[in-house]
Amino acid sequence: MSNTAEVASSVIVPKRKKHKHSFLINAQPYLLLLPAVLFMLIIVIYPMIKTINYSFTDYKVWKANDVKFVGLQNYINLFKDPAFLLSLTNTLKWVAIILAFQLLIGLGIALLLNMNFKFRGIARGLVLIPWITPSIMTSLMWVWMYHGSFGIINYALKGMHLIKEFIPFLSQTTTSLYSVMLTSIWQGVPYFALMLMAGLSSIPSELYEAGNVDGTSKWQAFIHITLPSLKNIIFITTLLRTIWIANNVDLIYLMTNGGPANSSMTMSVLSFVTAQKGFDFGYASAMSVTLSIMLVFVAIIYVKKMDMGGNS
Protein backbone atom coordinates (compact mmCIF):
# COMPACT_ATOMS: atom_id res chain seq x y z
CA MET A 1 0.00 0.00 0.00
CA SER A 2 2.60 2.56 1.08
CA ASN A 3 4.98 1.31 -1.60
CA THR A 4 2.65 2.11 -4.45
CA ALA A 5 2.02 5.53 -2.95
CA GLU A 6 5.72 6.28 -2.83
CA VAL A 7 6.16 5.18 -6.39
CA ALA A 8 3.17 7.28 -7.36
CA SER A 9 4.44 10.44 -5.71
CA SER A 10 7.86 10.07 -7.28
CA VAL A 11 6.18 9.79 -10.65
CA ILE A 12 3.97 12.76 -9.97
CA VAL A 13 6.73 15.11 -8.88
CA PRO A 14 9.16 15.85 -11.72
CA LYS A 15 12.78 15.48 -10.61
CA ARG A 16 14.04 19.01 -11.22
CA LYS A 17 11.22 20.69 -9.35
CA LYS A 18 11.57 18.36 -6.44
CA HIS A 19 14.90 19.91 -5.52
CA LYS A 20 13.78 23.48 -5.67
CA HIS A 21 10.51 23.23 -3.78
CA SER A 22 11.08 20.13 -1.74
CA PHE A 23 9.91 21.84 1.44
CA LEU A 24 6.72 23.05 -0.18
CA ILE A 25 6.10 19.64 -1.68
CA ASN A 26 6.61 17.86 1.61
CA ALA A 27 4.32 20.35 3.23
CA GLN A 28 1.62 19.94 0.58
CA PRO A 29 -0.53 17.33 2.36
CA TYR A 30 -0.40 19.32 5.57
CA LEU A 31 -1.25 22.59 3.83
CA LEU A 32 -4.26 20.96 2.21
CA LEU A 33 -5.40 19.66 5.59
CA LEU A 34 -4.80 22.93 7.36
CA PRO A 35 -8.20 24.60 6.85
CA ALA A 36 -10.09 21.55 8.10
CA VAL A 37 -7.78 21.06 11.07
CA LEU A 38 -8.01 24.74 12.02
CA PHE A 39 -11.79 24.60 11.83
CA MET A 40 -11.88 21.54 14.06
CA LEU A 41 -9.47 23.04 16.59
CA ILE A 42 -11.53 26.22 16.88
CA ILE A 43 -15.10 24.91 16.74
CA VAL A 44 -14.69 21.40 18.19
CA ILE A 45 -11.56 20.76 20.25
CA TYR A 46 -11.38 24.12 22.03
CA PRO A 47 -15.12 24.05 22.92
CA MET A 48 -14.87 20.46 24.17
CA ILE A 49 -12.07 21.42 26.54
CA LYS A 50 -14.22 24.32 27.71
CA THR A 51 -17.08 21.93 28.51
CA ILE A 52 -14.80 19.77 30.61
CA ASN A 53 -13.79 22.95 32.42
CA TYR A 54 -17.41 24.00 32.94
CA SER A 55 -18.16 20.68 34.56
CA PHE A 56 -15.90 21.60 37.48
CA THR A 57 -17.56 24.99 38.02
CA ASP A 58 -20.94 26.42 39.03
CA TYR A 59 -21.20 28.27 35.68
CA LYS A 60 -24.69 29.55 34.99
CA VAL A 61 -25.32 31.73 31.96
CA TRP A 62 -27.11 34.46 33.89
CA LYS A 63 -24.16 34.91 36.25
CA ALA A 64 -21.34 34.39 33.77
CA ASN A 65 -19.16 36.96 35.56
CA ASP A 66 -19.24 35.10 38.84
CA VAL A 67 -18.06 31.55 38.16
CA LYS A 68 -16.54 29.52 40.96
CA PHE A 69 -14.48 26.35 40.77
CA VAL A 70 -16.37 23.64 42.64
CA GLY A 71 -14.20 20.61 42.01
CA LEU A 72 -16.10 17.36 41.69
CA GLN A 73 -19.24 18.78 43.33
CA ASN A 74 -21.33 18.60 40.11
CA TYR A 75 -20.39 14.96 39.62
CA ILE A 76 -21.17 14.11 43.24
CA ASN A 77 -24.55 15.85 42.95
CA LEU A 78 -25.33 13.91 39.79
CA PHE A 79 -25.29 10.59 41.56
CA LYS A 80 -27.56 11.90 44.31
CA ASP A 81 -29.99 13.38 41.81
CA PRO A 82 -33.05 11.11 41.32
CA ALA A 83 -33.76 12.73 37.94
CA PHE A 84 -30.29 11.83 36.72
CA LEU A 85 -30.42 8.29 38.09
CA LEU A 86 -33.77 7.76 36.39
CA SER A 87 -32.35 9.14 33.15
CA LEU A 88 -29.46 6.70 33.43
CA THR A 89 -31.71 3.64 33.54
CA ASN A 90 -33.94 5.17 30.87
CA THR A 91 -30.90 5.62 28.63
CA LEU A 92 -29.95 1.96 28.99
CA LYS A 93 -33.51 0.85 28.17
CA TRP A 94 -33.75 3.39 25.36
CA VAL A 95 -30.58 2.15 23.66
CA ALA A 96 -31.07 -1.59 24.20
CA ILE A 97 -34.69 -1.82 23.08
CA ILE A 98 -34.39 0.49 20.10
CA LEU A 99 -31.22 -1.21 18.93
CA ALA A 100 -32.71 -4.70 19.16
CA PHE A 101 -35.84 -3.81 17.17
CA GLN A 102 -34.01 -1.73 14.59
CA LEU A 103 -31.63 -4.60 13.95
CA LEU A 104 -34.40 -7.19 13.63
CA ILE A 105 -36.72 -5.10 11.48
CA GLY A 106 -33.80 -3.73 9.48
CA LEU A 107 -32.60 -7.26 8.74
CA GLY A 108 -36.11 -8.26 7.69
CA ILE A 109 -36.38 -5.31 5.35
CA ALA A 110 -32.95 -5.95 3.88
CA LEU A 111 -33.75 -9.59 3.18
CA LEU A 112 -37.08 -8.69 1.56
CA LEU A 113 -35.69 -5.90 -0.57
CA ASN A 114 -32.77 -8.03 -1.64
CA MET A 115 -35.18 -10.28 -3.58
CA ASN A 116 -35.93 -9.52 -7.19
CA PHE A 117 -39.34 -8.01 -7.81
CA LYS A 118 -40.88 -5.44 -10.07
CA PHE A 119 -41.00 -2.27 -8.00
CA ARG A 120 -37.93 -2.99 -5.90
CA GLY A 121 -36.26 0.35 -6.67
CA ILE A 122 -39.32 2.31 -5.59
CA ALA A 123 -39.80 0.18 -2.47
CA ARG A 124 -36.17 0.77 -1.47
CA GLY A 125 -36.58 4.52 -1.88
CA LEU A 126 -39.81 4.59 0.15
CA VAL A 127 -38.39 2.55 3.01
CA LEU A 128 -35.54 5.02 3.47
CA ILE A 129 -37.69 8.15 3.80
CA PRO A 130 -38.15 8.14 7.61
CA TRP A 131 -34.41 8.44 8.00
CA ILE A 132 -34.18 11.80 6.19
CA THR A 133 -37.50 13.20 7.42
CA PRO A 134 -36.99 16.23 9.68
CA SER A 135 -37.47 15.30 13.34
CA ILE A 136 -40.00 18.08 13.72
CA MET A 137 -42.19 16.48 11.03
CA THR A 138 -41.66 13.00 12.49
CA SER A 139 -42.67 14.18 15.93
CA LEU A 140 -45.75 16.01 14.64
CA MET A 141 -46.93 12.92 12.73
CA TRP A 142 -46.47 10.58 15.67
CA VAL A 143 -47.76 12.92 18.39
CA TRP A 144 -50.89 13.23 16.27
CA MET A 145 -51.21 9.47 15.88
CA TYR A 146 -50.72 8.96 19.62
CA HIS A 147 -53.21 11.71 20.49
CA GLY A 148 -55.22 10.84 23.62
CA SER A 149 -58.59 11.99 22.24
CA PHE A 150 -58.31 11.94 18.45
CA GLY A 151 -55.32 9.66 17.77
CA ILE A 152 -55.74 7.10 15.04
CA ILE A 153 -53.86 4.49 17.10
CA ASN A 154 -56.47 4.82 19.84
CA TYR A 155 -59.32 4.59 17.31
CA ALA A 156 -57.72 1.51 15.76
CA LEU A 157 -57.10 -0.26 19.07
CA LYS A 158 -60.62 0.50 20.27
CA GLY A 159 -62.08 -0.57 16.95
CA MET A 160 -60.37 -3.92 17.36
CA HIS A 161 -61.65 -4.09 20.98
CA LEU A 162 -58.10 -4.27 22.33
CA ILE A 163 -58.68 -1.36 24.68
CA LYS A 164 -61.77 -0.02 26.45
CA GLU A 165 -60.64 3.53 27.10
CA PHE A 166 -58.39 5.76 25.00
CA ILE A 167 -54.77 5.74 26.20
CA PRO A 168 -52.88 9.04 26.57
CA PHE A 169 -49.71 7.35 25.29
CA LEU A 170 -47.36 10.30 25.62
CA SER A 171 -48.73 11.83 28.78
CA GLN A 172 -48.71 8.94 31.24
CA THR A 173 -45.55 7.76 32.93
CA THR A 174 -46.02 4.07 32.13
CA THR A 175 -46.17 4.49 28.34
CA SER A 176 -44.32 7.69 27.40
CA LEU A 177 -40.81 6.27 27.01
CA TYR A 178 -41.96 3.21 25.05
CA SER A 179 -44.14 5.29 22.76
CA VAL A 180 -41.23 7.54 21.79
CA MET A 181 -39.10 4.41 21.36
CA LEU A 182 -41.46 3.14 18.68
CA THR A 183 -41.09 6.42 16.81
CA SER A 184 -37.32 6.23 17.16
CA ILE A 185 -37.31 2.64 15.88
CA TRP A 186 -39.35 3.80 12.89
CA GLN A 187 -36.93 6.66 12.26
CA GLY A 188 -33.75 4.58 12.49
CA VAL A 189 -34.78 1.30 10.85
CA PRO A 190 -33.86 2.55 7.35
CA TYR A 191 -30.24 3.02 8.36
CA PHE A 192 -29.90 -0.59 9.45
CA ALA A 193 -31.74 -1.76 6.37
CA LEU A 194 -29.44 0.28 4.17
CA MET A 195 -26.24 -1.08 5.67
CA LEU A 196 -27.49 -4.65 5.69
CA MET A 197 -28.68 -4.41 2.07
CA ALA A 198 -25.20 -3.28 1.13
CA GLY A 199 -23.80 -6.20 3.10
CA LEU A 200 -26.15 -8.70 1.42
CA SER A 201 -25.30 -7.54 -2.06
CA SER A 202 -21.61 -8.09 -1.35
CA ILE A 203 -22.08 -11.80 -0.55
CA PRO A 204 -20.88 -13.74 -3.60
CA SER A 205 -23.75 -15.74 -5.13
CA GLU A 206 -21.42 -18.75 -5.59
CA LEU A 207 -21.75 -19.38 -1.88
CA TYR A 208 -25.49 -19.93 -2.23
CA GLU A 209 -25.08 -21.95 -5.42
CA ALA A 210 -22.66 -24.27 -3.64
CA GLY A 211 -25.24 -24.56 -0.88
CA ASN A 212 -27.93 -25.45 -3.41
CA VAL A 213 -25.83 -28.30 -4.75
CA ASP A 214 -25.39 -29.63 -1.24
CA GLY A 215 -29.15 -29.45 -0.74
CA THR A 216 -29.20 -26.96 2.12
CA SER A 217 -32.57 -25.44 2.93
CA LYS A 218 -33.24 -21.70 2.82
CA TRP A 219 -33.16 -21.50 6.58
CA GLN A 220 -29.83 -23.34 6.75
CA ALA A 221 -28.42 -21.06 4.09
CA PHE A 222 -29.52 -18.05 6.14
CA ILE A 223 -27.88 -19.38 9.30
CA HIS A 224 -24.70 -20.72 7.73
CA ILE A 225 -24.07 -18.32 4.85
CA THR A 226 -26.00 -15.08 5.25
CA LEU A 227 -25.55 -14.34 8.95
CA PRO A 228 -21.82 -15.13 9.13
CA SER A 229 -21.20 -12.92 6.09
CA LEU A 230 -23.12 -10.07 7.70
CA LYS A 231 -21.46 -10.48 11.09
CA ASN A 232 -18.96 -7.69 10.61
CA ILE A 233 -21.36 -5.15 9.20
CA ILE A 234 -23.94 -5.91 11.92
CA PHE A 235 -21.28 -5.38 14.57
CA ILE A 236 -20.03 -2.09 13.15
CA THR A 237 -23.51 -0.70 12.49
CA THR A 238 -24.64 -1.69 15.99
CA LEU A 239 -21.73 0.12 17.62
CA LEU A 240 -22.29 3.26 15.58
CA ARG A 241 -26.02 3.21 16.22
CA THR A 242 -25.50 2.68 19.97
CA ILE A 243 -23.69 5.99 20.07
CA TRP A 244 -26.21 7.84 17.93
CA ILE A 245 -29.24 6.49 19.74
CA ALA A 246 -27.75 7.38 23.13
CA ASN A 247 -26.95 10.89 21.90
CA ASN A 248 -30.36 11.50 20.37
CA VAL A 249 -32.15 14.45 21.89
CA ASP A 250 -34.62 15.98 19.49
CA LEU A 251 -37.21 13.23 19.20
CA ILE A 252 -37.82 12.92 22.95
CA TYR A 253 -37.54 16.66 23.43
CA LEU A 254 -40.10 17.38 20.74
CA MET A 255 -42.55 14.61 21.64
CA THR A 256 -42.63 14.59 25.45
CA ASN A 257 -39.98 17.03 26.68
CA GLY A 258 -38.73 14.12 28.78
CA GLY A 259 -41.95 14.00 30.75
CA PRO A 260 -44.28 13.38 32.35
CA ALA A 261 -42.33 13.42 35.62
CA ASN A 262 -39.06 12.59 33.80
CA SER A 263 -40.49 9.22 32.75
CA SER A 264 -39.08 9.56 29.22
CA MET A 265 -35.94 11.46 30.17
CA THR A 266 -32.61 10.12 28.91
CA MET A 267 -29.18 11.47 29.87
CA SER A 268 -28.63 13.48 26.73
CA VAL A 269 -32.12 14.98 26.89
CA LEU A 270 -31.68 15.85 30.57
CA SER A 271 -28.37 17.59 29.88
CA PHE A 272 -29.95 19.54 27.03
CA VAL A 273 -32.97 20.56 29.09
CA THR A 274 -30.73 21.56 32.02
CA ALA A 275 -28.67 23.73 29.68
CA GLN A 276 -31.57 25.15 27.72
CA LYS A 277 -34.20 25.80 30.37
CA GLY A 278 -32.11 26.36 33.50
CA PHE A 279 -29.02 27.70 31.74
CA ASP A 280 -27.11 25.71 34.35
CA PHE A 281 -24.13 24.99 32.12
CA GLY A 282 -21.90 23.68 34.90
CA TYR A 283 -24.26 20.89 35.92
CA ALA A 284 -25.33 20.13 32.34
CA SER A 285 -21.65 19.85 31.37
CA ALA A 286 -21.04 17.28 34.09
CA MET A 287 -23.93 15.24 32.64
CA SER A 288 -22.72 15.34 29.08
CA VAL A 289 -19.13 14.58 30.11
CA THR A 290 -20.41 11.53 32.03
CA LEU A 291 -22.35 10.35 29.01
CA SER A 292 -19.31 10.91 26.78
CA ILE A 293 -17.12 8.82 29.06
CA MET A 294 -19.63 5.98 28.81
CA LEU A 295 -19.74 6.25 25.03
CA VAL A 296 -16.02 6.61 24.49
CA PHE A 297 -15.54 2.91 25.19
CA VAL A 298 -18.01 2.03 22.45
CA ALA A 299 -16.35 4.55 20.15
CA ILE A 300 -12.90 3.06 20.71
CA ILE A 301 -14.10 -0.44 19.82
CA TYR A 302 -15.74 1.03 16.74
CA VAL A 303 -12.63 2.88 15.61
CA LYS A 304 -10.43 -0.19 16.16
CA LYS A 305 -12.83 -2.33 14.17
CA MET A 306 -13.00 0.19 11.32
CA ASP A 307 -9.23 0.49 11.33
CA MET A 308 -8.72 -3.26 11.06
CA GLY A 309 -11.20 -3.37 8.22
CA GLY A 310 -9.31 -0.64 6.41
CA ASN A 311 -6.00 -2.45 6.58
CA SER A 312 -7.08 -5.92 5.59
Binding site: A36, M40, I43, V44, Y46, P47, M48, K50, T51, Y54, V61, A64, I243, A246, N247, V249, S268, S271, F272, A275, F281, A284, S285, M287, S288, V289, L291, S292, L295, V296, A299, Y302, V303, M306, D307
Partner: peptide, 21 residues
Amino acid sequence: ISFLMIHMFPPVLLLMPLFTI
Protein backbone atom coordinates in the same frame (compact mmCIF):
# COMPACT_ATOMS: atom_id res chain seq x y z
CA ILE B 1 -9.51 8.76 13.39
CA SER B 2 -10.00 12.03 15.22
CA PHE B 3 -12.31 13.24 12.45
CA LEU B 4 -14.29 10.04 12.93
CA MET B 5 -14.43 10.39 16.71
CA ILE B 6 -15.72 13.95 16.58
CA HIS B 7 -19.27 13.08 15.66
CA MET B 8 -19.57 10.51 18.42
CA PHE B 9 -19.91 13.02 21.22
CA PRO B 10 -23.27 14.21 22.56
CA PRO B 11 -24.39 17.41 20.79
CA VAL B 12 -24.85 19.16 24.14
CA LEU B 13 -21.13 18.86 24.78
CA LEU B 14 -20.50 21.34 21.97
CA LEU B 15 -23.69 23.29 22.28
CA MET B 16 -22.88 24.96 25.59
CA PRO B 17 -19.36 26.23 24.88
CA LEU B 18 -20.33 27.35 21.36
CA PHE B 19 -23.31 29.19 22.83
CA THR B 20 -21.02 30.96 25.32
CA ILE B 21 -18.46 31.84 22.65
